[in-house]
Nucleic acid binder design. Structure first.
Lengths: 214, 214, 214, 214
DNA sequence: GATGAATGAGGATTCATTCAT
DNA sequence: CATGAATGAATCCTCATTCAT
């Protein structure tokens, strides 16, 4: 278990200690993520995570204060992935662009899978809740700003309550994975994009924007 | 804590045994519900539930095999509340009606609060998942049937993918409570109803339906 | 649930209360015996015994201070059955008579079955141990006395240690049920009687006793 | 409680991990044995065993799945001790040899004491019963084979039922400890050996075998 | 007396966390 | 630094016993 590796040209302590430590930390994070997803947060023990990462139980606690902190670190690393992308509304062919955005977000979210763990934690960890709420507020503000720009340009329905529409859009982005589970079918992002666009643009405007692609 | 109840025609000597037992069972269910909501399912112990209900630990196990079974009983009692109401689309003034339905459903759901516990259970209890999936399928089928009726009458957009719209409507109903949490404001059910109706009816049709109220 | 039974000639409180109580007590004893045998003493709960006897849990404690006391009562009622019969050695045809005695004792013991419960209790209940030891001492004394009579008449081996022979005989009587379990075959009481007689009588004497039957 | 042991050649830094773990395991086994014997199996808790062995409750469960498994391990370690030795019948001076065998077996059995726990377990643990039955069958077969050899050489009584005699011998070996308890006197193994030999050899043969010692 | 629901102490077992090596 | 055995508090659940009806 030496850190050195004997080679032809002498010994190379190739991997610096810090870097090795980072590898272990990453292995623990990844093992935590995988196990949290497959078994749930409470059902996963620190020992299991360590075992899965190929380190000793005690090593877990060198890198993380406890199980909760590992999850926090996971979130910090990936919080930007949890936040959905910001659509640009007065674009050319917004439906196509939105479908693309949604698909990309969905794939990233699914790779991470972290959203599956969150519901378990929210009721018992208020700090956790705050972090998420904060992130969501930022996204909300960004989407709302874009919607306002579109509204000012006269592109949107004129009876829109922008807050509710913003929330609706966020809800779509956060619940796409539910759709797949429920329907059992692969998700048609174009249909979802169509629905969102119908909420934002009146039919005439939308038609124009579609044509302006060329 | 007297078991006697003074009535118009004298005193009833005592609440019959069965009824008293049912009271205790109900107290346990209610305590379970409250504690699950405030602390989360895993964080709540059978002992706590019993204490909260004012009975001994052992009494809990007289009425429920374990914590999980209590939750199942809660679900059984209220599963119909979890399932959102079925809107009738080709109605007169659908927005108003829908807003009313949503508000009623929201209030019932909130009183129960059970939906907050569900996400914690789903990853680890497959039987649980089945029950919910089954319930959701039923609702989906009902909403979809109504939409098809409306479509056949020529009331809806003609480019609708009814499956996706159905899912969108269900998503709205299941996520209203999220809206409140996120916005911090009281929910405007009229706005939500307006959004849903925009997804279903083209502007002209909607206008007609609104007017037909008189 | 009245104790009275209305008949043509008035009311007959036929079964006196004391007697009914005794019936319940007996039912509990019998249920205790049966359940102790089938499940073991520790594995049997007071509730089960009451249920099996057709009375309420609380009724159990009206008749017995606790589970242990029920077992004690069982023993008291049947302690004489546990004690093996006293063979008469200088009899005509002792082998046949002994075989008969053994079989009778075995059948009684088996019907009762109580011996199966005893080993479980002995290590933890010294009073219990005392009772049994006392009973065994009495039997030992009786068998020993008979053996001495036979010895004085010159019927036995002259190098016998009577104490050890007495113990051997008792051991046989207490372990017949083991023989059946181990061999899986029905017990041949004649063979056992032959063995015991060989321990007591020299071949010549035995031959004489056999012949004297006529 | 130092892990160091001063030896002739200096100090051994520590007992290697595996060995230390085995020490703990052995301490738990020994504590289990002692407590099972003094209090009975059911009356002994895992916590008590751990305390008695000087370790924490949880440590018990590192080495044994539960109380039952500890007992199984005890049995596995000592099952050969439970099985009585195999007498050689057509030996010179068989009584003396048998007395010696019995005494040795008795001492070993008593040191272990495990036989006291067995009766408690048999009614409720069928796997347990199987293990013991299996062991007993082996011994039975061995003793029976020896008896047959002696019979073929014309050394035994000619009216012997070998099965019953075999069982009788086993019964003796399994019940010697009972004798002590009942009589309160030290056991005279010579007397027991004499009794067994009388069951096997006719007086003439026995006399010959005794003399052949020289 | 009879009932059986209620009690709560106590046992089995798990697991987050520490610490000697 | 890494290790993984050890810790013991905390949980689930049972059951002997009591007591209000």
């Amino acid at each position: 278990m030496s850190d050195r590796e004997e080679g032809l040209v002498g010994s190379f302590p190739f991997i610096p200690k810090q870097e090795r430590a980072q590898l272990k930390r990453k292995a623990l994070l990844e093992s935590g993520r995988v196990l949290f997803l497959s078994k749930g947060y409470e059902q996963t023990t620190a020992k299991e995570i360590a075992l899965h990462a190929g380190v000793a139980t005690g090593t877990f606690y060198r890198y993380f204060a406890d199980k909760r902190q590992l999850l926090m670190a996971l979130l910090e690393d990936h919080i930007d992935l949890l936040t959905p992308p910001e659509p640009v509304w007065f674009n050319i062919n917004p439906e196509k662009r939105l479908a693309h955005l949604l698909e990309k977000h969905y794939i990233q979210l699914n790779e991470l899978g972290l959203y599956r763990v969150l519901p378990e934690l929210l009721p018992k960890d208020s700090e956790f809740l705050e972090i998420l709420t904060e992130a969501k507020k930022k996204i909300h503000a960004r989407i709302l700003a874009r919607l306002k720009q579109a509204q000012e340009k006269g592109l949107t329905w004129n009876d829109l309550d922008l807050n509710t529409v913003t929330w609706t859009i966020m809800m779509f982005m956060n619940n796409i994975h539910e759709l797949e589970k429920q329907s059992g079918l692969p998700i048609d992002f174009n249909e979802i994009a169509k629905i969102i666009c119908r909420l934002v643009y009146p039919p005439g405007i939308l038609e124009q924007l579609r044509k302006s692609e060329k």
